[in-house]
Design a binder for these strands. Structure first.
Lengths: 350, 350
DNA sequence: GAGAATTTTGACAAGGTTGTCAATATAGGA
DNA sequence: TCCTATATTGACAACCTTGTCAAAATTCTC
């Protein structure tokens, strides 16, 4: 009960001796392998419990050429979107006996393929993760995915990636979610609807705009190119977009911002300019991240099951390489939800 | 350039053969050990470069009984405070050849010491990190720190911890920062100043309140117990606190919220109640986290160098066990800044 | 220039696990 | 009952690095 002076950890040999079997049998029991009598199996389990034995990860790694480690490749940014996904990923890893580690990747803009590959090789050779998880803004980067494939590392990507992409993909149906969101605005009676794009190197930007356009067209509305403004998925670009749109000679009555952070910036810009939301301007976001319920009015948006995306991603990744299906392709699509809150209303002068 | 069918990784033996030396010499060069001629040293380095050799982490771990892994113990929450610290920690780890992994700890409320220790033993035995980093809300938990100490694991804690605590501590001077912040309100002319506490099991709550009280007393002002309200460091508890305070028969003219999230909730509650900030009510927060500049008006607060806290924490932790100073105690205090923004002004009816 | 002191180098073992393969025990078939 | 087929078990090597210690090479001292 007092200080244990020798926190000497038991090893497999000790368990074997206590159970009166060979270490190989202990190994078999621990890895749930067949060919062990129930009687011995129980003896071993008792010994394991008694000695509080935990296998040495490094020895297993060395012998089995596995690291029991999944690496999450992140960009340096404070994003509650990624935070939530990370959370789900950690849960799944812990459940499956893996460990989630975080690595930061420099900005890879205008880097050549070879440079990117070298960078990734450096990063992965260091700790040799069994798999890598890619989220925005890297999930949609073809060069990264390709480089990792060449390096023989299993990858799971979260979010909308090229339709032709292979590997493991976990996402929601961005296209239809965007249509839903746009329809909501149209159903309220809006006709001049603006769109704030995200980073152009992310497929999310394009898919969401595509859904938006299709919904507009289907309703017989045209997309005014002047009401399509750039953004970079962050708060301040949303503010800028808002200022641009409100300064327009014939401003929109509603805006589709392609994520919540930009929607928040937009609402802030509107409010500061004396434009009331949703009275004078309706705004929708995308993600349902933390900011959506912290701003006022609260944001109408698409809810992405972020924790679940993270969990499912890890589960599929691990399942894939545990069954030696390395290189296999699968695409998992999770459900989204339209969340009606307070930033949308019918336009005034209809 | 095409697909490398054999991504066969070189091992130390290969380097040794190419350089014409023994593997031990290669080992020495790689670990910057003395007793190698410059000539051989260069030969080895060339061979390493040519073969793109990277040592096997698992073999090193097994032999050296190190994991080159630091574990960050987190609570399940979406906190940009922790996010920023994590960021700094990853940077430092990457720089020093370590890996930062994330683990989630269940809520440990009303768990006995033995239960906590068992839980931590389970967690750490799995992957045997070389060190553990503790942040809020666990940094100040005495039982966790003590259990880890008994388990023989090096720990670094971020944030205000007991004055008598040993181990490695990295923090800012919360006491004096709180005094500064309070003085600012007092200097503006405020007399009825409220205080929103954080979680009671965190030392930050107590230190900040202590600073607040001292500053009030020093200025000859009394702290009205009715204006000291509870909180839990999150947005919604800030809103609740705001509602409570505004409903008071004799409401305060200023509020010290013990972190930014609560300050944001408070400002939101005030705005919704038609109380203008800073016109009718001044508000200060603490941390200078992302929300501080995304809310309107922007928040007057104390800036904590979060990235730096994370970096310095990791550096000290690694330095400590690399020099076999396991168990050594040190306390690093980083600079903070008072950040004047738009949520504070002189009271109206002075 | 010979012997001692020091520096440089390498052979070998050890670290804890799992894969391979052979040995043993059990079950099945004639 | 004996032989074959199958299930169970264990001995040993291998994974790749680093610590130990001894051997070899170099430098120093008188």
């Amino acid at each position: 009960m007092a200080g244990e002076s020798k926190p000497k950890t038991a090893k497999m040999k000790d368990v074997a001796d206590l159970a009166g079997v060979s270490i190989k049998t202990v190994s078999r029991v621990l890895n749930n392998e067949p060919h062990v009598q129930d009687k011995l199996r129980n003896k071993v389990k008792d010994a394991v419990a008694k000695l509080e034995y935990v296998p040495s990860q490094s020895a297993r790694s060395l012998r089995g050429n596995k690291s029991y480690n999944i690496n999450l490749l992140c960009h340096a940014s404070d994003s509650s979107y990624i935070n939530a996904i990370q959370f789900g990923a950690v849960i799944a890893c812990q459940k499956l006996g893996y460990q989630l580690s975080i690595s930061l990747l420099e900005d890879l803009h205008n880097h050549s393929f070879d440079e990117i590959k070298a960078e990734l090789e450096q990063l992965t050779h260091q700790h040799r993760p069994d798999g890598i998880m890619l989220v925005a803004p890297y999930a949609g980067n073809r060069m990264i995915a390709f480089a990792l494939k060449e390096l023989g590392i299993d990858v799971v990507r979260i979010g909308p990636v090229d339709l032709t992409a292979d590997g493991i993909l976990v996402e929601i149906d961005d296209y239809n979610a965007s249509i839903e969101l746009t329809k909501h605005l149209i159903d309220l009676g809006h006709k001049r609807i603006a769109f704030v794009r995200g980073l152009e190197n992310q497929r999310a930007t394009h898919v969401r705009f595509e859904g938006f356009s299709m919904a507009m067209n289907a309703a017989g509305l045209t997309v005014d190119p002047e009401l399509v403004v750039p953004g970079s998925f962050d708060f301040s670009s949303g503010m800028t977009a808002g200022q641009t749109l409100l300064a327009h000679a014939n401003p929109p009555t509603a805006v589709f911002a392609s994520n919540d952070d930009m929607a928040a910036g937009l609402v802030t810009a509107a409010t500061m300019a004396g434009v009331s939301v949703p009275g004078d301007l309706s705004v929708v976001g995308y993600d349902d991240s933390a900011v959506a319920t912290r701003m006022r009015p609260e944001l109408t948006t698409i809810h992405q099951p972020l924790h679940e995306l993270g969990e499912v991603a890890i589960e599929n990744l691990i399942d894939s390489f545990q069954h030696k299906r390395t290189g296999s392709s699968r695409r998992v699509v999770l459900d989204h939800n339209f969340v009606l809150r307070d930033t949308t209303a019918a336009p005034k002068n209809k």
